[in-house]
Design a protein around this nucleic acid. Structure first.
Lengths: 220, 220
DNA sequence: GCGGGACCTGCACAAAACCTTCACGAGTCG
DNA sequence: CGACTCGTGAAGGTTTTGTGCAGGTCCCGC
């Protein structure tokens, strides 16, 4: 994960880890290249605007070293940027602001293309927390043996909370992870989705910590 | 499978493996030749444009070592390229972008021409999912003991979904795998075929995941 | 060369599903 | 008892899907 903006970098990293991926981070061009040779990742997430040298240059260099899927993140819907990116070996691109679930989907798609068998075999996509079961791959959720239907955002929110059960996450935290960009301070959007989540999974599942944020109850 | 573009290489490899073939990959001219001597394949899929030295050179070298069927992939509809290819020992060629199923068909045809009895005998091509049975080799599908007729695209779509039951695949995902090239975002083509598939295999077989894509129900 | 049929594509429209926001009352803290 | 934070319900707008259908293409038998 190569991105100089700390909030985004961390949000994406956390999210992917929540999906069972192993992620290493880099914050600039040179760092990206050295991390690449050091850790030999299966896929590279690359922001275009970077200190040192930009994402295109990074892409060129790592592609020269070894073919690897690259997912570019472009700040704006800039056709030129995208074309250059595809020209230097990027396999796919995403324009900011992007939805986390879209990013996760594309990452999965790229990896599946590269090695379906390994991808599915090595990571477990289901999470168990007492009578709550979450399957990230099929995006399904069960509460006490019976399936409940969640909307995309509700599911993402739950996934986010379930990544660290019991830990309190601020609204900004949650928003950044689910929506993919920092924002929405001062709105009640997160609250609304929490409410929906509670009504579907049980009121006590999500604990509110006054003045801080929300946390998922570790057990039922 | 020799191709330097990771996306294409992997897509083709996956697809052929899905049909029961054993596939090894190479990404450049030298790699192709060394893989050839090492793994002794029954057939070679060869892109013309390659780093190192090009597909024609690769073809010349491996044909010198041992006669083997070669299927060339040419980037454009370039007569000269094709003639050169046939001149150096290619048995067939395909111009990009090509349809996956056409590639599979040609691979099968070439192998059949060479007549490897073992070819058909050793590979398993059927998938069972509850009351749904798919035979990739004969391209036939049964639902609850009775056969249903699927069009080529419908079948490919089903095969793609059945490769990872329960997992949600995006439309772009599906399109890339079935049509062999990334594109068609913003059209309802995939939706249309999904609709047809549902009407033939049962409406609940394919689950739509709002905002994400489609998934095959693991069981009935 | 000429229908005819099977198939693919993609649009336009309608229907669902979903997200966001607001206003206000209830709750919490010091 | 203020000041602030949360929960809630509903309205309004947006996005995503389902569907019917009209062109096209391709292939085949005549």
């Amino acid at each position: 994960m190569v991105e100089d903006e700390p909030v985004i970098n961390q949000a994406v990293t956390d999210r992917l880890r929540g999906h069972g991926y192993e992620v290493v981070q880099a914050w600039d061009g040179p760092g990206a290249v050295s991390q690449f040779t050091e850790t030999a990742p299966d896929l590279v997430l690359l922001d275009v605007m970077l200190p040192g040298f930009d994402g295109h240059e990074v892409c060129r260099r790592i592609q020269a070293a070894r073919p690897v899927p690259v997912l570019m993140l472009t700040a704006r819907d800039d056709e030129a940027d995208i074309l250059v990116g595809l020209g230097v070996g990027a396999d796919d691109y995403l324009t900011k602001p992007f939805r986390m679930r879209e990013l996760v989907a594309r990452v999965g798609a790229l990896l599946r293309r590269v090695d379906r068998a390994a991808e599915l075999a090595t990571r477990s996509t289901t999470t168990d927390l007492g009578d709550l079961r979450i399957d990230a791959a099929s995006r399904r959720v069960w509460v006490a043996e019976s399936e409940v239907h969640l909307t995309p955002t509700e599911f993402d929110l739950l996934l986010c909370l379930a990544a660290s059960p019991g830990v309190v996450l601020t609204r900004e935290n949650l928003y950044a992870e689910v929506w993919g960009w920092p924002g929405a301070s001062g709105t009640r959007t997160v609250d609304s989705h929490v409410k929906a989540l509670r009504s579907k999974t049980g009121a006590d599942r999500v604990r509110t910590v006054h003045g801080v944020g929300y946390a998922l109850e570790p057990s039922a």
